[in-house]
Design a binder for these strands. Structure first.
Lengths: 199, 199
DNA sequence: AATATATGTCAGTGATCACTGACATTATAG
DNA sequence: CTATAATGTCAGTGATCACTGACATATATT
């Protein structure tokens, strides 16, 4: 029955993430989590010892930032619009993967040590990589970029806003989809960075 | 003792907002709220009847969108960069005023009817007003704007992202302040909208 | 002084919840 | 067949929490 144990723990973790991300830690009972996993409450406590420990274990599933590194190391073509598009898509990809965990962190009724730091690792890394990208592009003479760090941040914030908007309510703004937004935003940035300022 | 009653209800509402926005509805007890307001738990229940009703009353404090309307009606000078700056500042002003309520809504462990709608009223209105502004500016020949609604949305998302970033953790990104971000973002947009696309 | 109003104290109720111990069941592995 | 591991059932325990009723107190108005 070894695979049975594995399966049970997984089911419990998934149920916990699903329920807690929707309704919050304190609003979900251990009984509910166990039922959602088709297991008894007893099994939950045998596996994790406490409700808090269950959540902590669940949060360790948070995705790390390697994918982003790979993208920047290998998949860029040094053509502004194409690269920004690729970066955007990877960003939303990663964020969507962690969707429910981000929701839990947002509600954050429970303090889990080190979790906030891990959550922030991705955006921080993206900021660094994007800043370096802008600098290099600037050196290559392909863009005009007076303040790379700030412009990288600005670009990131737009993505973050769109993600949060989508996360919170799905369709707050009828007729405006994420993909459309990404394309428009990339265009705005590309246009702004590829021309001389002449006011 | 009429002003005393007024004062007590206010104190309770403020305490409720403060505590619940920080730790969530279920994590805060009525006892704590009462103590924070320097009143007895009994007084809380005499005023509001239930914990839920207390929160509902507190959330009715949500600011309405008149200020935004006034800004667009009276305070624009039809000069892109100046207007975008003014709009940004007013936006963050309003959002910051509702900061704690937005946090509560984000955690949203309690379903309060009609609250989500009220919360979304502001951004929706801003989107409409900003779109109209872009259209008019385009007609005046002051900007080149192919897709006003989408570009207004894009501009808004950047502001929203920056606000949420600030809301969540204050100083996630050392050395980058909100005001700097606003200025840079306005520049990026202004540059993108004031030139011909020539790719 | 008399009345009304806002608040406090205190002791308690009933519900819920995280968590436990004792014991039974099922399945698998050796 | 037997030992072991995973799960279930059931009946709890102790703590916490929203909420209440009875009664007292303080203050202000008339």
């Amino acid at each position: 029955m070894r695979q049975a144990k594995q399966g049970s723990a997984e089911k419990l973790l998934k149920a916990a993430i699903d329920l807690i991300s929707e309704r919050g830690y304190h609003a979900v009972t251990t009984q509910e989590i166990a039922s959602a996993a088709d297991l008894s409450e007893k099994t939950l406590f045998r596996h994790f010892g406490s409700k808090q420990r269950l959540l902590e274990t669940a949060l360790e599933r948070f995705r790390y930032a390697e994918e982003l590194q790979i993208l920047f190391n290998e998949q860029l073509v040094w053509e502004l619009e194409a690269d920004l598009l690729a970066i955007c898509r990877k960003y939303h990809d990663i964020m969507n993967h962690d969707r429910k965990l981000i929701l839990i962190a947002l509600k954050d009724e429970v303090h889990i040590p080190g979790f906030k730091e891990r959550r922030l690792q991705n955006p921080h890394q993206l900021l660094t990589l994007l800043t370096d990208y802008f600098i290099t592009m600037s050196e290559k003479g392909k863009i005009v970029c007076s303040n790379p760090a700030m412009q990288a941040f600005t670009f990131m914030m737009a993505q973050y806003g769109a993600f949060m908007n989508d996360l919170e309510a799905g369709e707050n703004y009828p007729g405006i989809g994420l993909e459309q937004f990404i394309q428009e935003n990339v265009k705005v940035f590309a246009r702004s960075l590829t021309i001389q300022k002449e006011l």
